[in-house]
Every structure is written in structure tokens, then in C-alpha cells.
Design a protein around this nucleic acid. Structure first.
Lengths: 314, 314
DNA sequence: TTGAAAGCGCTAACAT
DNA sequence: ATGTTAGCGCTTTCAA
């Protein structure tokens, strides 16, 4: 069960470990020696130890990703984008989910630091920021996603614009009394609501809170003609709360959501889409390129009009 | 930018590196010394290098996961299950997507081997099996998901039963002429079709192939009264191909899919659900427990009846 | 209870 | 072109 080491290969090929290392990493070696070494490598099924290699490089070749909530549709494409860039750069992706728990967020960031990841991409809340910043100070390129943090790289959406886009679309569809279900007091959520100038706003932390939130909206003083959900994580819950109450979309109430999802087309749900995949790619590229000055990239949202707001086809 | 090492801590605390190591890993140390060391650790912001640690342990504490296609709804919950168990065992998850390309599959498995992962969970095709087996032989606990491979740990679904469940349900709904869209010649797909005893079967490798596949089914000699899609990855495409052709579900044709997805409820799509999350947990537990004899766990599918097959409420 | 010293598997000067 | 040697940051005997 003992692992084959570079030393075994060296002995088998009758050379020194240095030569084996050179063969593997492309140094100057005589053709004949190289062949002997490769033969030894294959016949012994030698697999180099990336961990030990990393010790010399000072850090590993892995990109760390800390995700707050893997169940949000936003993240799958983000990860895909990151993964693709990583694969193109011979990096692997180390993933950690924090289940929306602050203590796990700091723990996971710390774990990534201990793993000496090549770079770190996080979608954490503010709690983990001090740890992340410390990592950045120690030379690990860190990218914050979905939030702008001064002095650090960040990838985010123009959330105010997203709100405005929604407001404009709703207005164009003749809806004037808008109710909002929003996820939390995170900046991104707040900004979206800001651009929205809504009549009523309720907060639902989890999907379990959604039915109550929807009831609150529906039972308010204003008679609403549109409901928007600013969190992709809650969209399904809001939608089914609405239809479950016998509300017809868009005849009774218009429905507008943030974040594209695979079934939006089938359901005719109009959404604000983030260029999630590109954001993931960009985040990974930032890690690879590792610019000296903090760069803060803001992506523009796009409205994908379907039928849930009572759109009239042009 | 030089990283703080255990040596720096030792100097700062006026002890040897051995003592620092003992303090961190819980050896026998005098209380007073321990305090001094902890003070040094915090004041220097020392972060232990997990890579170096791993080279002593022989392997890292990370669990490797190689996923064939991150876009399939099946995998998010699988990853969540794995991640949860990993987190509970102080492990991180290293994720690699292979984009359904055989060459990338072997490359990623090899990469995981080089990373000396604590264990490996793969949903790859057969191409990577020889590599995976080699890893297993070298002492890395490996778990194959979605396929049974002799001599190796595996987690899979009772696919034949899934097919039978579908057939029975369709029959109960009075549907007798069933057409199937299946994804590929992978065993899991074939077994599902087996249990199904369908009138017509077409294969769609990717979502792009789906429209043609559906046309082939619809244009066949038999007049079908049910379409089932045996691949979660293709469900959305099949559904929209159907509705896009003006076909009413379930009035014109019943629709039945494999793999639960967040919007199934909203759309009323009847599905065969896999206990994906539990499968992920079990896979990770297998990696942690590392049983000597190969264990092959087969999970049972469950039908979630909604309305897409013209179900009559009891 | 602690320190000195010998590794873990590999790379990178420096010789030859 | 190749071998020798000294590390990388840490753990782990073995003495003291």
C-alpha cells in the first residue's frame, strides 16, 4: 500500500531523483534517459504528489470557492464558469458550502487559507470579510461575488439598475401597484428594492417564510397588481404561494423574478437575468491574473420578457 | 509577503517547532508554554499549512468529486449531501466537472489522485474506470455513483424499478402507447427503458437533439398517448418541445420525467424521484468509513404523482 | 515537559 | 547531461 515515490522511479530507472523531476517538469535530459524514466514511471504507475509540489510553489494550484447557499439557481452557472476557466488553467476547484451559517463561513474561508488555495472566490456575507481580507493581504487573490467591498476584487450586478429595469417593465405593462418579496437585508437585495419604488415590501429569510410574506402582501391596504421576487432562491416558493392561492398570473397579478432558471421559459415567467456564467468566468480569471489594484466589475442585468407580466406582444 | 511558519511561531514563543506542533495537535505541553504559544500564534496570525500536514498523513483531508455534467439537476443535491457530510468531518470538497468529455474525465480523476484526496466520488463514464480502480487499489476509497461496477463501492438507483414504476403509473392513468426520450446508452438509461416496455424510443445526446427526437416520436406510426423522458438533463427541453408544438399536457399526451426538480410542483409534472441528497450523504460516508469489502448500495425510486399524466385524484 | 534531529516527497541550486 | 545537496513546512521519534 506504500505509494510509489519519485525515489522509486529513480532507482528503477537507475538515475537520481533530480533527473526524474527534470523529466517530469521538462528540464534538459538526454533522450535515452528520458525514455528510461518514462518507462519506469509507467511500469510503476507513478503518480506525482501534487501536495508536495505545492509546498515548493508556496501554494496549491486549486481555486477555492465558498458558496453561501448551493441551492440558489444563481450558483450552478457561476460554478460552471469558474470551473471552465480553472480547467483551462490546470486548476481544480475546491468547493465549500456554508449553509447560510456565519460560523461556517469563517471556518470555510479559514480552511481555504490553510489549503493555500491559489485564489479564493467567495459569495459570503460580511462576517467572513476580515478573514478574506487577511488572505488577500497574505498574497492570495480573493474575489468577492455579489457584493462590492472596498479594496478588494469584486464581481457584482448593477442591482439598482435591475430594480429600475423591473419598475420600467412593470410600468410598461400597465402595472402600478407593486409588491415585493425580498430575501434579506443584504446590500444586493436592498439595492434591487431601491430601484423598484414599490408599494409594499416584505422580507422572507427562507422559503418557509414565503407563504406568510405573500399573505402579508396580499392582505395589505393596497390592492397590488404585481408581485416581484428579488431573490432567485425564493422564486419557486413565491410562485407556488401565488398559484396555490388561486391567483392567476398575469391576469390577477403580474409576476416578475430575479435570476433566470431552466423552467422560466416553460412557465412564461419574465425575469431579470444576471450573466452568471460570465461572472463566474471573470471571477476565476481575476484569480488567475491576480491584478495588483483591486478591480470591481459590475455586470449589467437584462430583462427577459415573457408573459407573466401580461406583456403584449409587439 | 513571506508566510508565517511554525518556525516563526516557535521563535516568537521561545520554544522549539516540535512544541508548537504539539500545542496545535494536542500533545502533552505545560499550560504556561501552551499559553505563550497560542499568544504567538494569534499575534502572528499563523495559519497552519494543510498541504504540508497532508504529506505526513500520506493524503489530504479533501474529498474529491468528479461530476460528468454539472447542469443536470441530479447533481446539485448530490453535492449538497456530500458537502454536508464532508463539513461534519472537517473535510472540504474538491469538485471537477468533465463537461461530458471522456478525455477530461480521465484527466480529472488523475488530478484527484495527484491531489491525494482522502476519497473520490465519481459520476463518470466507463472510460475513467481503470484510473479509478487504480486509485482504489492504492488505498483511496472510491465510490461510483449511478453505476454498479464490480469490486468497487457504488451508489445507484434501482433503474429497472424506476422504469416499472413509470409503466405502472402510466397504465393506471389509462395510457397504453408510450414513447420515450432517453439520453444515451449508459446502463442507467438502458435499465430505465427496460422496465418501461415502451412503444417507441429515441435517443437524444444533448438538449439540441431533443426537438428532432420528439419529432421522430410524434411522427412515428403509433399514435402515442404518453411521452417519458428518462434523463433529468433533458426534461426541460422535452417539455418545451412538446408544449412548443401546441401539445396539451396531459390532454393530448401524458408527460412523465425522471428526477425531481424545483418547478415540477408548479408545472404539475409527475416525476420519478431519486433520493439524491441521501445518495450524496451515503457516498461521502462510504468515503469516510472506507469499508474493506466493496459495498454496492441501490436506492429505491419513488413516484411523485401530480397531474401531467392525467391523474385522477382519489 | 521539552528540544534536536531525522524525515515526508519533491524541487532547485550548485557541482561535476 | 546528470548527481549531490540543501531545503520547503511540518511531524515524530528519541534523548535529555
Amino acid at each position: 500500500m506504500k505509494r510509489v515515490t519519485i525515489g522509486d522511479v529513480a532507482t528503477h530507472a537507475g538515475v537520481s531523483t533530480a533527473t526524474v523531476s527534470r523529466v517530469i517538469n521538462g528540464g534538459v535530459v538526454a533522450e535515452a534517459t528520458a525514455t528510461r524514466v518514462w518507462d519506469a514511471i509507467t511500469s510503476l504507475e507513478y503518480s506525482p504528489n501534487a501536495l508536495t509540489k505545492s509546498i515548493f510553489a508556496g501554494r496549491s494550484s486549486t481555486i477555492g470557492v465558498v458558496i453561501r447557499d448551493l441551492s440558489s439557481p444563481f450558483y450552478l452557472d457561476l460554478i460552471r464558469g469558474i470551473d471552465e476557466v480553472a480547467a483551462a488553467n490546470d486548476s481544480l476547484v475546491m468547493l465549500a458550502n456554508t449553509f447560510r451559517r456565519d460560523d461556517r463561513e469563517t471556518a470555510q474561508v479559514r480552511a481555504m487559507d490553510e489549503q493555500r488555495v491559489r485564489g479564493l472566490i467567495v459569495t459570503t456575507g460580511v462576517t467572513a470579510d476580515s478573514h478574506t481580507r487577511r488572505m488577500a493581504d497574505n498574497g492570495t487573490p480573493c474575489v468577492i461575488v455579489s457584493r462590492i467591498v472596498p479594496g478588494m476584487h469584486s464581481i457584482s450586478l448593477n442591482n439598482v439598475r435591475a430594480g429600475e429595469l423591473m419598475a420600467a417593465h412593470l410600468a410598461a405593462c400597465g402595472r402600478t401597484s407593486v409588491g415585493v418579496v425580498t430575501a434579506s437585508r443584504r446590500p444586493s437585495q436592498i439595492e434591487r428594492v431601491q430601484g423598484l419604488s414599490a408599494r409594499a415590501v416584505t422580507v422572507a429569510e427562507t422559503t418557509e417564510d414565503v407563504p406568510d410574506a405573500v399573505d402579508a402582501l396580499l392582505g395589505g391596504n393596497d390592492r397590488l397588481d404585481a408581485i416581484v421576487c428579488t431573490s432567485g432562491r425564493l422564486t419557486a416558493a413565491v410562485h407556488s404561494a401565488l398559484t396555490g392561492r388561486g391567483i392567476a398570473i398575469p391576469d390577477d397579478i403580474a409576476f416578475l423574478a430575479v435570476d433566470e432558471f431552466p423552467w422560466a421559459e416553460a412557465l412564461g415567467v419574465t425575469v431579470i437575468a444576471q450573466p452568471t456564467y460570465d461572472m463566474g468566468r471573470k471571477a476565476a480569471e481575476l484569480v488567475i491574473e491576480c491584478p495588483d489594484e483591486p478591480v470591481s466589475l459590475v455586470f449589467e442585468p437584462a430583462l427577459i420578457a415573457r408573459t407573466s407580466c401580461g406583456e403584449v406582444s409587439s
